[in-house]
């Protein structure tokens, strides 16, 4: 099975996708009856890349200003919408229903396991 098929096994998975560094959609899966489509996933993937970049900037600034560590490099970002969440590591993402969302499992599946995860 591909990595995207693995992501689709997560609880409440509605869609999974991979994207390039710009956020352009490379590949995707959409669950049956999900309202998602490829155009929406492409926009979402662009947002994922933007959010990872901003969070990375924040982690850098935070760690420099507070002389602490632990956030950089950012391994994942989740956008929590009304009914679903989009979890990304910047290259791949998965959309899961909020009711069933297992964020820990999603980060594990995306390889964002942390140094102490």
């Amino acid at each position: 099975m591909s990595e995207l098929d693995d992501l689709m096994q997560l609880p409440g998975a509605q869609a999974a996708f991979s994207n390039n560094d710009l956020g352009e959609l490379l590949d995707h899966r959409i669950a049956e009856k999900s309202p998602m489509d490829a155009t929406t996933l492409d926009l979402l993937a662009h947002m994922c890349v933007a959010n990872m970049a901003i969070a990375t900037m924040q982690a850098r600034g935070w760690e420099t200003s507070s002389q602490s560590g632990g956030f950089y490099p950012v391994e994942g970002f989740t956008l929590v919408g009304m009914q679903w969440s989009a979890v990304t590591n910047g290259r791949r993402g998965v959309v899961v229903s909020n009711d069933a969302a297992d964020y820990e499992a999603a980060y594990r599946a995306l390889g964002a396991v942390g140094s102490e995860g």
């Binding site: 309202p35 998602m36 489509d37 560590g69 956030f71 950089y72 919408g81 942390g114």
Partner: peptide, 20 residues
């Protein structure tokens, strides 16, 4: 883009770092 997708309104966000 997708009025029936159930995105809006945003509820929040999560940033995952290696330790925190």
């Amino acid at each position: 883009h997708c009025p029936d997708c159930g995105a809006n309104p945003a509820q929040g966000w999560i940033v995952r770092g290696p330790q925190f």
